[in-house]
Structure formats: C-alpha cells, structure tokens
C-alpha cells in the first residue's frame, strides 16, 4: 500500500533517474549515446571507422578481464592483482617465444601463458578460500610480488623480437575484425552461458548475496571461490595474448594501473562490491564508457594535459557509482 502511494507521489523525472541508475546498463547506454552525440558535434572525426576500431581494440582486453573480475566481485571478493599478473604473463610469454631467449613454438607458449595465468589465479583463490586470508590482502601482496617477479624475468632488459605467429594474435584480423574483438565476443558469450545457464554461475551469485545461507544450503563455497580466481587468471592470460603482441616492445611496465581500470569498469557497470549483484550487460557498458573517455577527452580538444586527469576520472566514477547505489537503496526503503 505504502509502495503504491509513494510511486504515485514521486515526480516522473526522479522516477526516470531511479530507473536508469538501477538498470545500470540502460543508464550507461544513454550516457554513452549522449557523450557520443556531444563529442561528434564538437569533432566529427570521432565517428570515423578507424577511431571506433581503435577504441574497440583498446576495450577488448579490458572487457575480457572484466568478465572474470565481475564474477570475483559477485562472489563477494576482490582481485586487484590483474594488472601485475598481466605484466608477468606478458614477460613470460615474451621470454618464451622470443628468438633470443626461449624460442618455443607459439602454440606451446600460448598454452603455457594461459597455464601460468591459471596457476596464479589458483594461488590467489587458494589463499583466499582455504587459507582464509582476505582477498584484498592477498591480491595487494600479489600486486607487488608479481611485479617483482616480472622484473626478475625481464632482467632489466626488454623484448622486441616476437615471432610472427604470436604477433598475429595482436595484429591479425578475421573477416576484417581484429582477433582481439572476436576473442572478447567469445569470452562474453561464454560468460553469459556460465552466468545464466550453469549451476556454477548461479551458485556464485548465491554465495555472494548470502554466504551464510549458501553455506547452510550446502554449496561448495571454497571450490567456487577457487574457481572464480582461477577463471580470472585464465582470462587475464587470454587478454595478455591478444593485447600484448600489438606492442612493438615487451617491457616490465605492462599492465600498470590496469587493475584499477578493470575494477572501475565493473563497479560502474552496476556490480555491487558487497557481492551477489551484477550483470554482464552493465559491465560491458562500463567497459565501453571507461575506455572511451580518454579518447573523448582528446577529441574534445581539451589539450593533451587532459590525459593527466584520466586516473582522477576513474576514481570519481567509482565514487559516483557507490553514491548512486547508496541513493537508490535509500529511495527503495522510503
């Protein structure tokens, strides 16, 4: 009864805002369209195919990792080690395939890179689920430790001689669309299937929204947490394989700050940091928005100094998402 009256008295504008903020994908989509409109009026060059393609290629690895990180957040944990993990995987991959170092066949290097990603993910997951260390501590430690390992692997130098077999993953295209985009599409489809059509996906939501109830219902909480971290490790490996070969040089600084970008995308996309809530369409919109922003700043002719603000914008977007969530939950209560 009170619900009915309160919806009647809420002004339509406010109701629309509540709808857009709580259906994050719709709200973000509208925001992206608005932003596109503004920037293309100010500078029509933004809508050129090449530019759109560049943004999409930039977004692909972020999107791939975000699909994994979303599940980590949904399960009620966090992983801020993905940037360093990517740095280490890039260094390992480079060292394995480079003609002057490992000189392994590309196929084997690909399998090994993914394998290392899974192993690091498993280690994260084991420490969180079985050793009982909070995920922020585990992944904060990993964020630094893996960077140290990367420096040791690289040995103070960098790798420039990647063979064509690996280069193809980064620069090649199939039906005119870069490999990385196909990969991102595959990862999205697999994630959709995982989240909506499998018991594992539904259980991850269950342990995130009410861990105690999930425990009482007999759900395998520890293996599930192990799985989400390993899956994120695997996807970080995939993202490394399709993005790092685009670069001409593999150095020890790859992936610095990536963890923050991915967390921003996932949180802005409507995933609750307390677990149990989040959907892929929102995360996808979050990824598009956050990767678009730096290019938008350049095309709005705010000068090159605008790029220095990109980190501040990321932080403000996370804060904005938190405020929006808080505001909605208060509106729902009243």
């Amino acid at each position: 009864m009170t619900d009915a009256t309160s919806t009647h008295t809420t002004p339509p504008l406010k109701r629309a805002l509540i709808y857009l903020l709580s259906h994050r994908a719709a709200g973000l989509f509208l925001f992206i369209v608005l932003l596109l409109g503004i920037v293309s009026v100010m500078n029509p060059a933004f809508l050129e195919t090449q530019n759109i393609k560049d943004i999409a290629v930039q977004a692909a690895p972020v999107c791939i990792i975000s699909c994994g990180l979303m599940l980590v957040l949904v399960s009620g944990e966090i992983d801020i080690s993905v940037g360093s993990m990517m740095g280490l995987l890039a260094a390992c991959m480079g060292a394995m395939v480079s003609e002057s170092r490992g000189h392994l066949p590309p196929g084997m290097a690909i399998v090994l890179t993914l394998g290392i990603g899974v192993v690091i993910g498993l280690l994260n997951g084991w420490l969180v689920a079985y050793a009982g260390v909070p995920s922020i501590i585990v992944t904060l430690g990993m964020l630094t430790a893996l960077r140290g390992v990367t420096e040791i692997v690289m040995g103070g130098s960098w790798i420039t001689d990647l063979p064509d077999g690996i280069r193809f993953l980064g620069t090649g295209a199939f039906m005119g669309i870069p490999i990385s985009l196909w990969t991102a599409l595959t990862v999205i489809l697999v994630s959709l299937w995982l989240v909506h059509r499998t018991a594992i996906g539904r259980r991850i939501y269950a342990i995130g929204s009410n861990p105690h109830a999930a425990y009482l219902a007999g759900l395998p909480i520890k293996p599930l947490k192990l799985f989400v971290f390993a899956w994120t490790g695997f996807l970080t490996g995939v993202a490394t394989l399709v993005s790092v070969p685009q670069l001409s040089v593999v150095d020890s600084g790859i992936g610095v700050g990536l963890e923050l970008l991915v967390v921003t995308c996932v949180v802005v996309g409507g995933t609750a940091v307390s677990g149990g809530l989040g959907n892929l369409s929102g995360v996808l919109c979050g990824v598009i928005l956050m990767t678009m922003i730096s290019t938008v700043l350049i095309f709005m002719k705010l000068g090159e100094n605008a790029t220095y603000w990109s980190r501040a914008i990321q932080g403000l977007f996370i804060l904005g998402a938190i405020i929006a969530d808080h505001w909605i939950s208060r509106q729902r209560k009243s």
Binding site: L260, V267, W309, G315, L316, I318, L319
Partner: peptide, 27 residues
C-alpha cells in the same frame, strides 16, 4: 555515510587523489 567497506572507498579515492595530483601538476 555510504556504509560501504572502507577498502572500496579508499581504493576509489586512491585513484582520485593520485589522479588529481597528476592532473594539477601535469606530472
């Protein structure tokens, strides 16, 4: 106010404050 775990708030402000420092000083 937001009743969100400090780690996520301070993760956000970690980015925001550092970003402001970079933005103001152009690094």
């Amino acid at each position: 106010r937001m009743k969100v775990h400090p780690l996520i708030i301070t993760l956000a402000t970690m980015a925001a404050y550092r970003g402001m420092a970079e933005g103001i000083s152009h690094a």
